[in-house]
Design a protein around this nucleic acid. Structure first.
Length: 431
RNA sequence: GGAGAGAUGGCUGAGUGGUCGAAAGCGCCCGCCUGCUAAGUGGGUAAGGAUUUUCAUCCUUCCCGGGUUCGAAUCCCGGUCUCUCCGCCA
């Protein structure tokens, strides 16, 4: 969420920000509620001050043994207490309303973010490699089916549509990708690995800004009041909730592999064939807590960390600076990485890297202290995918397919798969 | 799942109805002192909020939510989490 004083002092900037993101935000309503809330609060506090001082006085009278006077003072507080109860309730209701409204106000995009509401306004900031020339390129679902890498029928038998079953070399390739991606980021890029739970409390999703805005997008276990995470950004953001991080630990860089779960309600039928869109998938996440002044630079570095994994795999990609209307709710700047599918002849989103400023840190109350004498400040949070495996899997086998139906294994994956090629003859894996 | 113990500031930890936003120690900050270092010594040191009294005043906060009371860290009820033991289990 945004700083309340900031909204009060800059309502027009907040409105312009929401507009740039193409989000309807109840800013005027918030301002109105906030004013009313504060005036109620003032009234409440003055009543409390009065009650506090008379309680103190009664204590003194009791200590001095002036019982009668004390009793008189006691009965005199009755009326004030009733008034307090009333106003307390009013103030609480207003506070809840202010909170509920401010959760609906998005973060403000930075000035470098292009105006726009559609893909067309996204800005390509980098292109790496070239579209591979493949004659009669086969789609990943055909390659996978021929080589026995995926069994989508049986996956839907056990879980319904939108789930993948990796088999044989497919399962091995999936695991190789995970290991490669994690080890790349920890060994070469300075990230510390963590392995978080995939079931989290509701407040974790509120901290990232996923809720209440996107109610219904996530799997919820109602009996236990837990949610399946849509991304490990969710547990990682709350890792240091309500803590003050020692300054010398910033910038803190973490990476995590986790399964991610998304209901994708309403998305059925649209660009979903094969591995393009799943209810469950694995993703390596890159995550940072930074000082405010470092976050812009750290976002670029984080994006380069994600890009470097694609480069190591030799996959053609492009990086986009998203326009306001395409951005997420909580971020101030967002880059998307897209990889080229030679068979589908389109770019697929493989990573999304964002700087959230102090928006999530304020919700989660994550702070740091510059030095012993200074007040705690909110950290900045950043995250990005590094990378999501199903689309990576899909593009990888499409890019490295041979005319005879086999797949060349990129060099960096060979140590994990212990083969240079996957073809119909190396059928069962026994090692 | 059953039984018990606990949750206090950056940390350790005392506090069982008013003198407690909270002892003491550690850490940290500012002095003093001692050839240097170490030690010693004096003082300071929670967060959030409201207020055009802003080097100030007031409010809230001792896990969370209720309750009792003029008054709650302290008493009562409900919840969460942690630890120990038992059970179950990959």
């Amino acid at each position: 969420m945004l700083d309340r004083n900031y909204i009060r002092n800059n309502p027009n900037l907040v409105k312009a920000g929401a507009e740039k993101k193409n989000v309807q935000a109840p800013i005027d309503e918030w301002i109105e509620c906030d004013i009313e809330h504060r005036s109620t609060l003032r009234e409440l506090e003055s009543i409390r001050a009065e009650l506090n001082s008379s309680a103190k006085k009664i204590g003194q009278l009791m200590a001095e043994g002036k019982k009668e006077e004390a009793e008189n003072a006691k009965s005199a507080t009755k009326e004030l207490k009733e008034k307090q109860t009333d106003i307390e309730e009013k103030s609480k209701t207003l506070e809840e309303k202010v909170q509920q409204l401010e959760l609906q106000i998005p973060n403000i995009p930075q000035s470098v973010v292009p105006e726009g509401t559609s893909e067309a306004e996204n800005k390509v900031i980098k292109t790496w490699g070239e579209k591979p020339e493949i004659t009669n390129a086969q789609a990943h679902w055909d390659i996978a089916s021929n080589l026995g890498l995926l069994d989508m029928q049986r996956a839907s038998k056990i879980s319904g549509s939108g789930f993948a079953l990796y088999t044989n070399w497919g399962a091995k390739l999936q695991r190789a990708l995970i290991n490669f991606l994690i080890e790349h980021q920890t060994n070469n890029r300075g990230y510390t690995e963590v392995y978080p739970p995939v079931l989290v409390r509701r407040e974790c999703l509120v901290n990232t800004g996923s809720l209440p805005k996107f109610e219904g997008d996530f799997y919820e276990l109602k009996d236990d009041d837990l949610y399946l995470i849509p991304t490990s950004e969710v547990p990682l953001t709350s890792l240091y909730a309500n803590e003050i991080i020692p300054t010398n630990q910033l910038t803190m860089k973490m990476t995590a592999i986790s399964s991610c779960f998304r209901r994708e309600a309403g998305a059925a039928g649209k660009d979903t064939r094969g591995l393009q869109r799943l209810h469950q998938f694995d993703k390596v996440e890159l995550f940072k807590y930074t000082k405010p002044e470092d976050s812009d630079e750290e976002l670029d570095l984080l994006r380069e960390d994600a890009e470097s994994a694609l480069e190591a795999l030799g996959l053609h990609y492009r990086s986009l600076l998203l326009c306001g209307g395409e951005m997420g709710f909580s971020n101030v700047r967002q880059y998307d990485l897209e990889i080229w599918s030679p068979a589908m002849e389109k770019y697929l989103e493989i990573s999304s890297c964002s700087n959230f400023g102090d928006f999530q840190a304020r919700r989660a109350n994550i702070r740091f202290r510059r030095d012993a004498a200074s007040k705690p400040e909110f950290v900045h949070t950043l995250n990005g995918s590094g990378l999501a495996t199903p689309r990576l899997f899909a593009v990888l086998i499409e890019t490295y397919q041979n005319e005879d139906g086999s797949i060349n294994v990129p060099k960096v994956l060979q140590p994990y798969l212990k083969t240079e090629i996957i073809n119909p003859t190396n059928e069962l894996v026994t090692n």
